[in-house]
């Protein structure tokens, strides 16, 4: 008997998340004008994907321009060490910042 058809399902482009739990990612250093949802204090910092947020969703930066449908990608809950984000952080070196970031803002670190 042939392999199960379940083993050969082909997902659409960008249907699957680009990053996975535990992966190190960098927030792109990008300075768009207009509307954005990634605070400047996080740009270029490196963190770890804590969770892939399912399902894929519309980029809320595009929603800001009234596009309520269209391409979907994933959001990721990413954790950062506070000491990595703030050079003079006053607190435990284990303290963390968690935030959800859209896929277009991340690259593999």
């Amino acid at each position: 008997m042939n392999a199960s058809p379940l083993a050969s399902v082909v997902p659409a482009l960008k249907e699957l998340p680009a990053f996975s739990e535990g992966q190190r990612v960098r927030v792109l250093e990008r300075a768009p004008i207009g509307h954005y949802r990634v605070p400047i204090y996080l740009r270029r910092h490196v963190g770890t994907v804590e969770r892939v947020i399912e399902p894929a969703m519309i980029d809320n930066e595009e929603e800001g321009y009234g596009r309520n449908a269209g391409n979907r990608l994933h959001y990721y809950r990413v954790s950062f060490r506070m000491t990595e984000v703030w050079t003079r952080y006053d607190g435990s070196p284990r303290d963390e910042l968690h935030i959800e970031i859209f896929e277009t803002w991340l690259e593999q670190a």
Partner: peptide, 15 residues
């Protein structure tokens, strides 16, 4: 206390 880890969650999207 310093030996307790603080986790700050900044909400920006649908979560």
């Amino acid at each position: 206390p310093d030996d307790v880890e603080i986790r700050v969650s900044d909400s920006t999207a649908v979560i």
